[in-house]
Simulated scan of single mutants.
Amino acid sequence: MQTQQETSRPSEETERRASELIVAASRFVRAASRHRGMDRSPIVLRTLSNLKASGPMRIGDLAVAEHITQPTMTGVVKRMELEGLVARESDPDDGRAWLMAITPAGLGVLEEFRSRAAARVEPALTHLSEEERSVLWSAARILTKVTAELDSE
């Protein structure tokens, strides 16, 4: 008889496929991100993306989201602030704390990066069948759903 832990544990096959998905998604993102004119580090682009998706955040929360130390994120945010990509806002829940918010310039940098990445990917998509492209669009929606669930944990 199986215990509850044994029945709820993913199979080795599911774990293997999940690992393959993570590797494939990471390689895709890196390949799509390689384009001329990318003058921002991945951490800056991910931080801008987090701020766009989640709204203003504390530096500590940004550090947790990026799996880096708070002092490292503080340095990243200071440079971004000097470049006008983010701005400080007072935290309405704690007058002593600050939130970092994406600025219009930061949004512009992020959108330009995403546009260039999409332009890099587009020619490769033309070599796929309509059915394959449809599967990719469905996969993107599913990944968004799975990501939301992972982010809520």
Rank of each mutant, 00 (worst) to 15 (best):
T3V: 00
T3H: 03
T3K: 05
E6P: 02
S8K: 08
R9Q: 05
R9N: 05
P10H: 01
E12W: 03
E12D: 01
E12Y: 03
E15S: 13
E15W: 00
E15V: 05
S19I: 02
S19K: 12
E20T: 09
L21I: 04
L21A: 09
I22P: 13
V23K: 13
A24P: 06
A24G: 14
A24V: 13
S26F: 12
R27M: 15
F28S: 13
F28P: 09
A31E: 15
A31P: 07
S33C: 15
S33T: 14
R34S: 13
R34G: 12
R36D: 11
R36F: 02
G37R: 03
P42C: 07
P42F: 14
P42R: 11
I43E: 09
I43G: 04
V44T: 00
R46C: 14
R46V: 15
T47F: 12
S49A: 15
S49K: 14
S49G: 12
N50C: 14
K52W: 08
P56Y: 03
M57N: 03
R58F: 01
D61L: 05
L62T: 02
V64N: 13
A65Y: 06
A65S: 07
A65D: 07
E66L: 13
H67N: 09
H67D: 07
H67Q: 08
T69C: 07
T69Q: 10
P71T: 01
M73S: 09
T74L: 01
V76Y: 10
V76I: 01
V76F: 01
V77A: 04
V77T: 09
K78M: 01
M80A: 08
M80S: 04
L82I: 02
G84E: 12
G84Y: 12
A87D: 06
A87H: 08
R88Y: 10
R88L: 14
R88P: 11
E89L: 13
E89Q: 06
S90N: 08
D91K: 03
G95M: 13
W98R: 15
W98K: 15
L99A: 04
L99E: 06
T103C: 10
P104C: 02
P104E: 07
G106W: 06
L107Y: 01
G108L: 07
V109H: 04
E112R: 12
F113R: 07
R114C: 11
R114N: 12
R116H: 11
A117Y: 02
A118F: 06
A119R: 12
A119Q: 10
A119F: 05
R120F: 11
R120N: 14
V121L: 15
P123I: 04
A124P: 02
T126S: 01
T126K: 00
H127W: 07
L128H: 03
E130L: 09
E130M: 08
E130N: 12
E131A: 14
S134F: 05
L136G: 01
L136H: 02
W137H: 06
W137M: 02
W137Q: 11
S138E: 04
A139G: 02
R141F: 06
I142Y: 11
L143G: 13
T144A: 15
K145P: 05
T147Y: 11
E149H: 11
E149R: 09
L150C: 15
D151P: 05
E153N: 10
E153G: 06
